[in-house]
């Protein structure tokens, strides 16, 4: 009888060990690696459509150039005509905005909104979840028909745009479907949905995103990425000089 009890204990212990919690540090790193092109340049065309209550829909198109290995990006607005040539440069830890009419740069911040949309400047930067956040807790759940981990994160530094985030991570592919972004007082500021993904080489990058402003009902922004390219870009692109020259 004792033998059977011991055997049962062993089997239960085996189940227990088999049910150990996922390594979220590893999963966050995987998410970062999936999104970042650390050894190549990345560029694409973005269409950004913003809806605000009682206002006309705002539509813009801009070209994005990213060099994740050096944590640099350039955003250059192509449409509408009135904003053509306005640009953003992130380099050496700074983010600059350029106005072609005055031919002046102004210092901006990753935490600021991109133009008047619900996207933040930080949304266009390389992914750094594993560096900026630690996992506080998680539960398992469903989002639509997908099994997901619902993970609570808190920031490890004050450089991030949102000090607290809750991520819905697909269990199978470890991609982020949804994020709730919270302020320091844990007030929900924004919900982000990452709806479309593209497989590019060994990477999986979001190409259709919806950002919902949780403070103003009915205010939301969709960003769609097209014309993705991994072609090498000249070093000069990631400089103030390029944005100035392109406007001459």
């Amino acid at each position: 009888m004792k033998k059977y009890i011991a055997l049962l204990c062993l089997i239960l212990a085996g189940f227990y060990l088999g049910a150990e919690e996922p390594d979220f540090k590893e999963i966050l790193t995987e998410i970062d690696n999936n999104k970042n092109f650390d050894d190549r340049d990345f560029s694409c065309m973005n269409t950004i459509v913003s809806e605000k209550p009682d206002e006309d829909t705002s539509i813009k198109q801009f070209k994005m150039f990213r060099r994740d290995g050096e944590d640099k990006f350039v955003l250059l607005i192509l449409k509408p005509e009135t904003e053509k040539g306005q640009g953003y440069l992130q380099a050496e830890g700074n983010i600059w905005f350029y106005d072609p009419e005055s031919r002046k740069f102004a210092h901006s911040s990753l935490k600021e909104n991109f133009q008047e949309s619900d996207a933040k400047n930080s949304d266009f930067r390389r992914s750094s979840l594993s560096e900026d956040y630690k996992v506080d807790s998680y539960i398992e759940g469903k989002l639509g028909k997908y099994d997901v981990y619902i993970v609570d994160l808190s920031a490890t530094n004050d450089e991030v745009t949102y000090p607290y985030r809750k991520l819905w991570i697909d269990k199978d592919n470890h991609i982020v479907f949804k994020s709730e972004d919270y302020s320091l007082t844990k007030r929900l500021m924004r919900t982000s949905l990452y709806v479309g993904y593209k497989k590019i080489l060994d990477k999986i990058i979001p190409t259709k995103m919806l950002f919902i402003d949780e403070l103003t009902e009915g205010q939301k922004t969709q960003i769609t990425l097209k014309g993705i390219s991994l072609a090498d870009l000249p070093d000069s692109v990631f400089t103030k000089s390029y944005i100035e020259r392109v406007n001459r």
């Binding site: 709806v195 479309g196 593209k198 497989k199 190409t207 993705i228 390219s229 692109v237 390029y242």
Partner: peptide
Amino acid sequence: MMEESDIESKTVSEESL
């Protein structure tokens, strides 16, 4: 949700940019 992507990988010249 997931699409395979056609990637443009031709070299980009500074002039065209």
